[in-house]
Design a protein around this nucleic acid. Structure first.
Lengths: 228, 228
DNA sequence: TCTACTTACGAACACTGTTCGTGTCAACTG
DNA sequence: CAGTTGACACGAACAGTGTTCGTAAGTAGA
């Protein structure tokens, strides 16, 4: 069994293999943090649809099975991404005098974070309402509303509505960005028969107007203005 | 070539096979309508996630490839579903005196249609803005707003915001329905440390309140009240 | 009767998330 | 120091997904 030459050969091979392993494989063990940052970079550059367990694993030079030791699910990974994204939102100390302004600022930060990682708002809509990092944001928002003298229930429901709107808005914007362009939509709308779509045809330009985030500001203004 | 006996045998077999075919296969050819109604029933009973090309095909006693002769994509099928759903929405003739009431009614119809087909709001968010059936709904809404004396641009943007909200709201409700129950969420929220989440902890009950569609009515009320 | 054309569909491709069993290494224990 | 334990890594595979290709079959027209 123990041929001395054979053994020394195996040792030899092992040592050579160990040379590469020490420098490449064993250098950086897989951690949750590395998974999340890799996934985030992936979403940022290629969109949420391009985020698959296999591609994250490949970016970490391993197979998909290795990820499941650190992350329960793809859903949990999505949740972690939403958390990491939420941590980028800065919460201002409440200033009762300009609470509406501060609230709008937080929602705008959230909007920009969602747009920075295209398509991730779908994960935000699916995320459980017990994510600690998103709860930090709602806590901060609640502080601003309460400082402004808004009743707790009204504050809670308004925050809820605005968060839903921000998610849906950014989701749609992300879709449009990679899909059909505005000109094509406009051209098709102009083809509508005035007989069946009188008002739409008459106001096509206004329907399709709203550069940048005018519609966003309008909608949030509506929500905040409605509060007593 | 033409052996009479052999020929008659083949004919015989063909006729027997034709007996079954005439009654089963050839009875109902595949059409777009049959695909859509089958898919809708499937979404209604099992949710949008259960809607796959393969399962629709199986319900029609065929393979998935057969669907692609009538429907370009899964995306197009989704679009057709949204169209069929939109056709269920009744548009009232504008009555300037009670336009807000009428608008709320249309959005409520839309909400209930979305909830009737759980998860389909995701398709609604992804649907192109040129779907003729959804344009019919927005045309009807536009008519109501304009009859109420609302400026076209304000009307268009408010409709847009409200549609986004309805989609997001129904999507979330559909998720919660099949997922974690309210009690579990409440229990977890009650565990939050008051040191880090003072306002959230203080108003847990109000945050989680809102039976049925109270939050929905509240949000739409906010949007409509914000209009001059 | 023979041809042209639309429809139907079995099989396969390239993906997806996820699990099982095995391997391999590090650190604690005798 | 030797040996065992336990956590981590991962190749291979499973059951799905949307979609395409090439072929078969049936209907309609000449």
């Amino acid at each position: 069994m123990s041929n001395r030459r054979g053994a020394s050969r195996e040792e030899w091979a092992d040592r050579i293999a160990a040379l590469d392993q020490r420098e490449q494989v064993r250098k950086e063990p897989i951690t949750v943090d590395r998974i999340v940052t890799t996934a985030l970079r992936m979403v940022e550059t290629e969109g949420f649809d391009a985020l698959t367990m296999r591609r994250v694993a490949a970016a970490l030079d391993t197979g998909p099975a290795s990820l499941y030791a650190h992350v329960r699910n793809k859903a949990e990974l999505d949740d972690l991404l939403i958390g990491a994204l939420s941590r980028n939102v800065e919460l201002p100390p409440p200033d009762a005098a300009r609470w509406r302004e501060q609230v709008l600022d937080v929602f705008t930060q959230l909007r920009d974070q969602f747009l920075r990682f295209p398509g991730i708002s779908r994960a935000a809509l699916s995320a459980p309402p017990t994510n600690l990092d998103t709860l930090r944001v709602t806590e901060g928002l609640l502080a601003l509303f309460l400082a402004g003298g808004v009743a707790p229930r009204v504050a809670a429901w308004t925050i809820d509505a605005a968060l839903l709107y921000v998610s849906a808005y950014t989701f749609e914007v992300s879709l449009r960005a990679g899909g059909v362009d505005r000109e094509e939509v406009l051209a098709r709308l102009r083809m509508l028969p005035a007989s069946r779509f009188p008002h739409t045809a008459a106001h096509v330009e206004e329907l399709n107007s709203g550069a940048e985030h005018e519609r966003f500001d309008f909608a949030l203004g509506l929500l905040l203005r409605g509060i007593a």
